Amino acid sequence: TEYKLVVVGAGGVGKSALTIQLIQNHFVDEYDPTIEDSYRKQVVIDGETCLLDILDTAGQEEYSAMRDQYMRTGEGFLCVFAINNTKSFEDIHQYREQIKRVKDSDDVPMVLVGNKCDLAARTVESRQAQDLARSYGIPYIETSAKTRQGVEDAFYTLVREIRQH
């Protein structure tokens, strides 16, 4: 089974770092803004072998026109913010609204991801993020692309959301 996953969120929150940590098991430290990259990885989730087709997208506003296209083809979405960047957390709402509009559905598989949880300088409390996820009816997972904490959990949870859909 193949799953088309799309990673969305503001610029600099760590979308590529999360994806590369999942696929290649290493942490990319330097920031190089993405336009669009796709990665494929075969994994076993709950005993089922599946192929993850992951689209890593641009957070930069100037590429926002490309969003409709990949939102149409994606089956599930990782909505990523950084726990030390309140603005990126506030941006999640717009991504969710755009996904709902493009998919013409209120019920699209999504996982809210709070990345950079290895950093002490948190400005978005776990509780705020949990409340937001609960209001959307989606899971919330904290990750660190640096330490790998929660990385597999985030992507695998999204696959489970798609399966249950």
Rank of each mutant, 00 (worst) to 15 (best):
Thr1Asp: 11
Thr1Lys: 10
Glu2Gly: 03
Tyr3Pro: 06
Lys4Thr: 08
Lys4Ile: 03
Leu5Ile: 10
Val6Cys: 08
Val6Trp: 02
Val7Ile: 03
Val7Asn: 04
Val8His: 04
Gly9Asn: 00
Ala10Asp: 08
Ala10Ser: 12
Ala10Tyr: 03
Gly11Asn: 14
Gly11Lys: 15
Gly12Thr: 14
Lys15Asp: 05
Ser16Lys: 03
Ser16Cys: 05
Ser16Ala: 03
Ser16Gly: 02
Ala17Met: 07
Leu18Asp: 01
Leu18Gln: 01
Thr19Glu: 07
Thr19His: 00
Ile20Cys: 02
Ile20Arg: 04
Ile20Tyr: 10
Gln21Asn: 15
Gln21Thr: 12
Gln21His: 10
Gln21Phe: 05
Gln21Cys: 14
Leu22Asn: 15
Ile23Asn: 14
Ile23Ser: 13
Ile23Arg: 05
His26Ala: 13
His26Asp: 15
His26Met: 15
Phe27Asn: 01
Phe27Ala: 04
Phe27Pro: 04
Phe27Thr: 04
Val28Phe: 12
Val28Pro: 06
Asp29Leu: 08
Asp29Ile: 07
Asp29Trp: 14
Glu30Lys: 09
Glu30Met: 06
Glu30Gly: 07
Tyr31Asn: 04
Tyr31Val: 02
Asp32Ser: 06
Asp32Tyr: 01
Ile35Thr: 05
Ile35Cys: 08
Glu36Met: 05
Glu36Asp: 13
Asp37Lys: 05
Tyr39His: 01
Tyr39Ile: 04
Arg40His: 07
Gln42Arg: 12
Gln42Leu: 07
Val44Tyr: 07
Val44Ala: 13
Ile45Glu: 04
Asp46Val: 06
Asp46His: 09
Asp46Glu: 14
Gly47Tyr: 08
Glu48Gln: 11
Glu48Leu: 10
Glu48Ile: 10
Glu48Met: 07
Glu48Ser: 09
Thr49Lys: 07
Thr49Met: 10
Cys50Phe: 12
Cys50Asp: 08
Leu51Glu: 15
Asp53Lys: 05
Asp53Met: 04
Ile54Tyr: 06
Ile54Phe: 05
Leu55Asn: 13
Leu55Gln: 08
Thr57Leu: 09
Gly59Val: 03
Gly59Glu: 02
Gln60Pro: 14
Glu61Arg: 09
Glu62Pro: 03
Glu62Tyr: 15
Tyr63Leu: 12
Ser64Pro: 12
Ser64Glu: 13
Met66Val: 08
Met66Cys: 10
Arg67Ile: 15
Asp68Asn: 12
Asp68Phe: 09
Asp68His: 09
Asp68Leu: 03
Gln69Leu: 11
Gln69Ile: 07
Gln69Met: 13
Tyr70Ala: 07
Met71Val: 06
Met71Ser: 01
Arg72Cys: 04
Arg72Lys: 00
Thr73Pro: 04
Thr73Tyr: 15
Thr73Trp: 11
Gly74Cys: 03
Glu75Gly: 06
Gly76Met: 14
Gly76Pro: 00
Leu78Ile: 14
Ala82His: 10
Ala82Met: 13
Ile83Glu: 07
Ile83His: 14
Ile83Tyr: 08
Asn85Cys: 11
Asn85His: 06
Asn85Pro: 02
Lys87Tyr: 03
Lys87Thr: 07
Ser88Asp: 14
Ser88Gln: 08
Ser88Phe: 07
Phe89Gly: 07
Glu90Ile: 10
Glu90Met: 10
Asp91Ala: 15
Asp91Cys: 10
Asp91Phe: 15
Ile92Gly: 00
Ile92Cys: 11
His93Cys: 12
Gln94Thr: 11
Gln94Gly: 08
Arg96Met: 15
Glu97Gly: 04
Glu97Leu: 10
Gln98Arg: 15
Gln98Leu: 14
Ile99Tyr: 01
Ile99Met: 14
Lys100Gly: 05
Arg101Lys: 09
Val102Thr: 11
Lys103His: 11
Lys103Ala: 10
Asp104Thr: 12
Asp104Ser: 15
Asp104Leu: 12
Ser105Asp: 12
Asp107Phe: 12
Val108Cys: 04
Pro109Lys: 04
Pro109Leu: 05
Pro109Phe: 05
Val111Glu: 00
Val111Thr: 05
Val111Lys: 00
Leu112Ile: 08
Leu112Arg: 00
Leu112Tyr: 05
Leu112Pro: 00
Val113Trp: 07
Gly114Ser: 09
Asn115Ala: 14
Asn115Phe: 04
Lys116Gln: 15
Lys116Val: 15
Cys117Leu: 08
Cys117Gly: 11
Asp118Glu: 12
Leu119Tyr: 11
Leu119Arg: 10
Leu119Met: 14
Ala121Lys: 05
Ala121Leu: 08
Arg122Gly: 12
Thr123Phe: 00
Glu125Trp: 07
Ser126Met: 13
Arg127His: 08
Arg127Tyr: 04
Gln128Met: 13
Ala129Pro: 05
Ala129Arg: 02
Ala129Asp: 06
Gln130Arg: 09
Gln130Asp: 10
Gln130Ser: 10
Gln130Pro: 08
Asp131Lys: 09
Asp131Glu: 15
Asp131Met: 13
Asp131Ile: 03
Asp131Val: 01
Asp131Gly: 09
Ala133Asn: 00
Ala133Lys: 09
Arg134Gln: 12
Gly137Glu: 02
Gly137Leu: 05
Ile138Asp: 05
Pro139Gly: 08
Pro139Ala: 06
Pro139Asn: 08
Tyr140Cys: 06
Tyr140Ile: 05
Tyr140Arg: 03
Ile141Lys: 06
Ile141Ala: 06
Glu142Pro: 06
Glu142Asp: 08
Glu142Asn: 06
Thr143Leu: 13
Thr143Gly: 06
Ser144Gly: 11
Ala145Cys: 12
Lys146Gly: 15
Lys146Ser: 14
Thr147Glu: 14
Arg148Pro: 07
Arg148Asn: 10
Gln149Ile: 05
Gly150Ile: 10
Gly150Cys: 14
Glu152Thr: 12
Asp153Arg: 10
Asp153Ser: 07
Ala154Tyr: 03
Ala154Asp: 01
Tyr156Gly: 12
Thr157Arg: 09
Leu158Arg: 00
Val159Leu: 12
Val159Thr: 05
Arg160Cys: 09
Glu161Ala: 10
Glu161Arg: 12
Ile162Ala: 02
Arg163Ala: 08
Arg163His: 13
Arg163Asp: 09
Arg163Gln: 09
Gln164Val: 04
His165Met: 13
